[in-house]
Computed example of a mutant assay.
Amino acid sequence: MKKLINDPKNVVTEAVSGFGAAHADLVTVSLDPIFIVRRDAPVSGKVGIVSGGGSGHEPMHGGFVGPGMLDAAVPGAVFTSPTPDPILAATKAVDGGAGVLHIVKNYTGDVLNFETAADLAAAEDIEVRAVIINDDVAVKDSLYTAGRRGVAGTVLVEKIAGAAAERGDDLAGVAEIAERVNAQVRTMGVALTPCVVPHAGEPSFTLADDEIEIGIGIHGEPGRERIKLEPADAIVDRLLGAVVEDVPFVSGDKVLLLVNGMGGTPQIELYIVYRRAAEVLAEKGIEVTRSLVGNFTTSLEMQGVSVSVLKLDDELTALWDAPVHTAALRWGR
Rank of each mutant, 00 (worst) to 15 (best):
Lys2Gln: 11
Ile5Trp: 03
Asn6Ala: 15
Asn10Trp: 09
Val11Trp: 01
Val12Lys: 01
Gly18Phe: 06
Gly18Thr: 08
Gly18Ala: 14
Ala22Gly: 14
Ala24Leu: 08
Ala24Phe: 06
Asp25Cys: 03
Leu26His: 09
Val37Ile: 09
Arg38Lys: 15
Asp40Arg: 07
Ala41Met: 05
Val43Thr: 14
Val47Cys: 02
Ser51Gln: 12
Ser51Asp: 02
Gly52Cys: 00
Gly53Asn: 08
His57Ser: 05
Pro59Lys: 06
Pro59Val: 11
Met60Cys: 13
Gly62His: 12
Gly62Tyr: 04
Phe64Cys: 02
Phe64Tyr: 14
Val65Asn: 04
Val65Lys: 01
Pro67Asp: 13
Leu70Lys: 11
Ala72Phe: 04
Pro75Lys: 07
Ala77Trp: 07
Val78His: 05
Val78Ala: 05
Ser81Arg: 01
Thr83Ile: 15
Thr83Cys: 08
Pro84Asp: 11
Ala89Glu: 01
Thr91Tyr: 01
Lys92Pro: 00
Ala93Arg: 02
Val94Asp: 06
Asp95Ser: 09
Gly96Asp: 06
Gly99Ala: 08
Ile103Gly: 01
Ile103Val: 15
Val104Ile: 15
Val104Pro: 04
Asn106Leu: 11
Thr108Cys: 04
Gly109Val: 04
Gly109Trp: 03
Asn113Glu: 07
Asn113Ser: 14
Phe114Leu: 02
Ala117Met: 04
Ala118Phe: 05
Ala118Lys: 03
Glu124Asn: 06
Asp125Tyr: 11
Arg129Met: 14
Asn134Met: 05
Asp135Tyr: 09
Val137Ser: 06
Ser142Pro: 00
Tyr144Trp: 04
Gly147Asp: 00
Arg149Gln: 08
Gly150Thr: 10
Ile160Met: 15
Gly162Asn: 02
Gly162Ala: 07
Arg167Gly: 10
Gly168Trp: 03
Gly168Ala: 08
Asp170Lys: 04
Val174Leu: 09
Ala175Cys: 10
Glu176Gln: 13
Ala178Asn: 11
Ala183Ser: 12
Ala183Tyr: 01
Val185Phe: 06
Leu192Glu: 12
Pro194Gly: 06
Pro198Cys: 10
Glu202Phe: 05
Pro203Met: 03
Thr206Phe: 06
Asp209Asn: 13
Glu211Phe: 08
Ile212Lys: 07
Gly220Leu: 03
Arg224Tyr: 00
Arg224Cys: 13
Glu225Asn: 00
Arg226Tyr: 03
Arg226Val: 14
Ile227Thr: 13
Ala232Gly: 00
Asp233Gly: 07
Ala234Trp: 00
Arg238Ser: 13
Arg238Gly: 07
Leu239Ala: 12
Val244His: 00
Gly252Ser: 07
Val255Glu: 08
Leu257Thr: 12
Gly261His: 04
Gly261Ile: 08
Gly263Arg: 05
Glu269Gly: 00
Leu270Gly: 06
Ala278Cys: 09
Ala282Cys: 00
Ala282His: 10
Glu283Asn: 14
Ile286Lys: 03
Ile286Ser: 12
Leu292Thr: 09
Val293Thr: 15
Gly294Lys: 10
Thr298Asp: 07
Ser299Leu: 02
Glu301Ser: 11
Gly304Ser: 08
Val305Thr: 13
Val307Pro: 05
Val307Gln: 08
Ser308Arg: 05
Ser308Ile: 10
Asp314Lys: 14
Glu315Leu: 15
Leu316Gln: 11
Thr317Trp: 02
Ala318His: 03
Leu319Trp: 13
Trp320Gln: 13
Trp320Arg: 12
Asp321Ala: 09
Ala322Asn: 12
Ala322Gly: 10
Thr326Val: 11
Arg330Val: 00
Gly332Arg: 12
Arg333Phe: 13
